[in-house]
Design a protein around this nucleic acid. Structure first.
Lengths: 252, 252
DNA sequence: CGAATAGTGTCTGTGAGACAATATATG
DNA sequence: CATATATTGTCTCACAGACACTATTCG
């Protein structure tokens, strides 16, 4: 383990290997059948004008997860009292050259925002962003170059979300606390870029959901039953359609 | 109290707090049908005499993964030329109080060491460890209190390994480059604490393995075919027997 | 009624799990 | 031959996937 003891032996205090610790946020939400991410347009150098993930530094008295929640509110202007959100750690990016200005190690987080599938909450750019907007994830990944290593982070976040949706009810975090099966199904469609069969989806999901007894009227068609999450794990897992099969899968 | 703490605070730049960045290593290997971890016995305070994970600080010019490889050699004395190993990032632990003396943020890594299932490579304790030894993971988790938050890290590492073995050939990283189906099966047995049916295991694994054409004689019984890894993913996944079902599953 | 959506029924192929059977080695 | 191990065969049950069908609502 040799954390500080070893350090005190081997290093002079002025050579203390310290870094700036940041968090970067991948905030996902679904609207219009498309997976969207909250991205900012950089106002300053480097990468001026490029899209980037919101983020900021971790304070001395908080851990990374706390910093992620704080920055989620500060950098995107999201009212977390009004929107259900879930935040989890993704991975840590520590290439010494990832920020050309100085060494910044970033603990990336995945944030999932509950929406009704139609409206997205307004974003208010934080201090150093020129603007903050929802962007369609698949389109951005295909067409834009993001600042720093944010392209990698966004890709990893999407992989993680898509993978986790196979064997957990993570998709329910992108939907209100109580939801219909169509709403949930549209999340799978948006993230996996596939179209699930409504009938089979119902049969697969019913055992892990709790029926609230209520029905929700639809614009057209029969009213849908309103469910909430019952079990956390889907076992055996849902399999991704071949069309949206597992990507290259980075290993280490 | 802490002279180091005082010093660190004086040194912190105004703009952003800086932290000491470390790596901790969970090194797994299988021997005697049991999953083992390379743990050190702490020589100094705090947690003197307790078991802990090997680890160390990340240097200014390297990323966390590189530091993990370096510390794997330095802190455990493992000869990586002689042993096939795989290292991947696990998660980052950033509780400001996780080290009572000062702030150390640690990027934990999972390292898998290939063995023949019988012998474990020798460990040579690094600078500040009293000793370094292989310890049976399940026993340690059940009976010992580890230093710092290393109990959490070890638990997370085991969860990660056990989970990944369901849908990838990660188990093959704990076995020589070429191996028999029994060897691989014993890895599953050791990690999952279950007993796989040899026949069904063979049928499930064969499609993702490459037959080398060679056979390996056994002490008793028929010689076993020697395989190497062909595909990385097992689809549909292998399901863990109910006896070794998925644990409590931390969420965020 | 026609259109759209929710949910159920039906059939088929794949494959997991239990376990028997066969083959090949050692002593 | 007795025993141990590898590997294949067999049977059954669960279930995914395709898709038809019924039910319920709106205009």
């Amino acid at each position: 383990m040799g954390t500080e003891e070893q350090f005190l032996q081997d290093y002079q205090p002025r050579e203390y290997p310290s870094v700036a610790l940041a968090v970067d946020l991948v905030v996902f939400a679904v609207a219009g059948g498309v997976l969207q991410a909250a991205l900012i347009r950089r106002g300053g150098h480097p990468f001026q004008g490029a899209l980037a993930l919101p983020g900021g530094f971790v304070r001395a008295d908080e851990d990374a997860l706390h910093a992620a929640w704080r920055e989620l509110a500060e950098e995107t202007g999201l009212d977390l009292g009004a929107h259900r959100a879930h935040v989890e750690q993704l991975a840590t990016y520590s290439d010494p050259k990832r920020d050309p200005r100085m060494r910044v190690v970033s603990v990336a987080h995945l944030a999932l925002l509950a929406t009704d599938g139609k409206t997205l909450p307004d974003l208010n750019p934080g201090s150093d962003a020129a603007s903050a907007q929802w962007q369609p994830v698949h389109t951005v990944l295909a067409n834009e170059k993001l600042a720093f290593d944010h392209q990698d982070i966004l890709t990893d976040a999407l992989d993680r979300l898509a993978g986790k949706m196979e064997y957990t009810l993570t998709a329910a975090r992108l939907v209100p606390e109580e939801f219909t099966l169509s709403q949930l199904r549209h999340v799978y469609d948006a993230v996996w870029g596939a179209t699930m069969d409504p009938g089979n989806f119902t049969r697969k999901m019913t055992p892990v959901l709790a029926d609230t007894g209520r029905k929700e009227p639809r614009a057209k068609g029969a009213p849908a039953t309103v469910f909430s999450v019952d079990k956390d794990f889907i076992s055996p897992p849902l399999t991704r359609p071949a069309a949206a099969q597992r990507p290259g899968a980075a290993d280490s």
